[in-house]
Design a protein around this nucleic acid. Structure first.
Lengths: 194, 194, 194, 194
DNA sequence: AATGAATGAGAATTCATTCAT
DNA sequence: AATGAATGAATTCTCATTCAT
């Protein structure tokens, strides 16, 4: 039941927003009563906190695996990390949207906790960039932090428009984004002849 | 007075959120009564709509000027458009954050209207890219739409973290982002010899 | 309207208890809506606080007059103070009962505030006793504080049983209590003969 | 277990109030579940009734012994009865406070039952006074009922302030109160001369 | 004896909005 | 232009109680 409540809450928070979703909405769709909701959760907020934590912790855990993987080059790690973010948005789009929209409604303490974890995620990404700069896989001409923010914006923002509708997969999108970041879009004039 | 209400609303919507800001909050800070609010606006929503419209229409207008400017190359237009977005976030950060967070609270009709204008902004950006591809300023290896979304993500997301704190100006940030998009970050091995 | 709400609240708090009285109860009897209640009071608690404050402050003010009255002996002051307490219970019996029963439901801060004022009232009473001890109006054989507590118990407790039903007036009761306290009930054997 | 529940309930009712104490509170502190509570009691109310009954019946029983004791004068009986009330408050202060505060929450039937027993206790006290008046131990100048109420107020009210903190014992307090009631506090001018 | 899931009838409170003045 | 009283619908949360196991 706890899980059913969580799932239905995700659906509704995504659809109508956290504030706009009433507990009545949630329990009505599950054909239980408000009492049941409060048997499993102490407040509406607590549900939101669970959603946030599960999302960012899932990301961090998978990111850790990428970082630890010794067989990957930094370019590959970059790609994998981008893909990780996008695939998460693909498979857990609702949670992704909720997580990007509804931070304000958490208690301060939880906001802090979540923000710390997000920062960790960003710093891990910066590690990949820095490592790549050292191994000369990446050039030094862009500050690591700006790059990381740019990347996070690019990928995270896709929760706003990206739907796997057959036309474009998360894999392809990850490839495109990696390519943009790696090679840019400038047409390099072919140095011809002589 | 109407303007004072609008300004105070922007402050509060940014600080506490649209839903969380009560009309009482707004009028209390202006030392007037609710009646006054309703004399100038028909509803709380109307204030939000005004904020949204003013923001996107401001962007569109300035974007138009860039597009029309015959003296600029497409690379330069790209940079100008990126700078436009970022400088808007710099000078109208509060509005930017509101506009990115609070779309749901508008009436459907207004949502549609706003979304259309946003699409127009994106399509205008795509025009620059397509023109650049034609003039061989930009390479063809990335789909225009994805590129546009990536750019929008990069720049728009900066409302989330970017504050002009002396360390980094909007101009610099625009330059960095343009460079990432143009040249990528891949270290190109110097073709030696012959 | 604010006053009507206060009055009706007093009736109901006395009759059903603070916790048991709902705001719906209050407004229903006044034929207004809950919104009206909250227009005049910020919470149910605030009403209770007002009742408490008004009661004890009324007592303190009248007690002050007794204390300042130079024309009264200490015995007379004692009587007047006892009468004051009892007449208050007579004319404001409902408030008296509420005030004696419902302290717990106030916020800690207010509880402290009320308790301080109550203590002030008791200490003022002790002043009368001490003054009377000095002028030899009262004997020294009972500790002032215990006497004060005893008196307070006697009189305050009458909120529990005392109703002016024609049989016994507050004046008479005050006279009886003063007499008990002054002369006791011991039959003093008449010293006969030489 | 039944007894543990009762004890914990007394603690909590005294501390937080009857209404404010939830069954969850009670069972949480005993590390059992609500089912257990309902195995031993049919309702929360029933617990309160038990507390009330045990308290007043204890008083009545001990009072009976005082009344029956042929070796005591009425003055002594008066003292013993006062001491009984105060010692009960001393040893069962929590119950005393509960019993004085929470009568309203019992069913009407139980309220009646309790009130009858309280009246019995008061009438028994009046018997002592009347007997003393007959034997000329007490003077006739105060109505018996008022005296009884005054006494009950004095003693019962002490649940509100009296704590055995080493400074004052229940025995001493009983002696003081008996003395006040017997001898009053008026300084009797020494009959001088022959 | 004891559990734990579920109920359901409230309760206080919030707040955008209306409207006569 | 502006006020202030009043509305009323909605919302979160509480908790004693039930009951199958």
């Amino acid at each position: 039941m706890k899980n059913q409540i969580l799932k239905k809450s995700i659906d509704l928070f995504d659809d109508k927003g956290f504030k706009e979703t009433t507990i009545q909405d949630i329990v009505d769709q599950l054909d239980v009563t408000k009492g049941t909701f409060y048997y499993y959760f102490n407040s509406k907020q607590e549900v939101l906190r669970d959603i946030h934590l599960e999302y960012i912790e899932g990301l961090l855990q998978e990111q850790e695996e990428i970082l630890q993987n010794q067989t990957l080059s930094n370019k590959e790690k970059l790609y994998e990390n981008i893909y990780l973010t996008l695939s998460k948005i693909d498979t857990q789009g609702k949670e992704a949207r909720i997580v990007h929209r509804e931070l304000r409604h958490l208690h301060e303490d939880h906001v802090k906790q979540i923000k710390l974890k997000r920062k960790e995620y960003r710093l891990n990404f910066e590690k990949i960039i820095d490592a790549g700069k050292k191994t000369k896989e990446f050039s030094n001409h862009i500050r690591t932090d700006i790059l990381a923010f740019g990347f996070l914006g690019m990928t995270n923002y896709s929760y706003y428009w990206f739907r796997t509708d057959g036309e474009l997969t998360d894999k392809e999108l990850a490839r495109f984004y990696t390519e943009i970041i790696l090679k840019g879009i400038e047409e390099v004039p072919v140095k011809e002849g002589i």
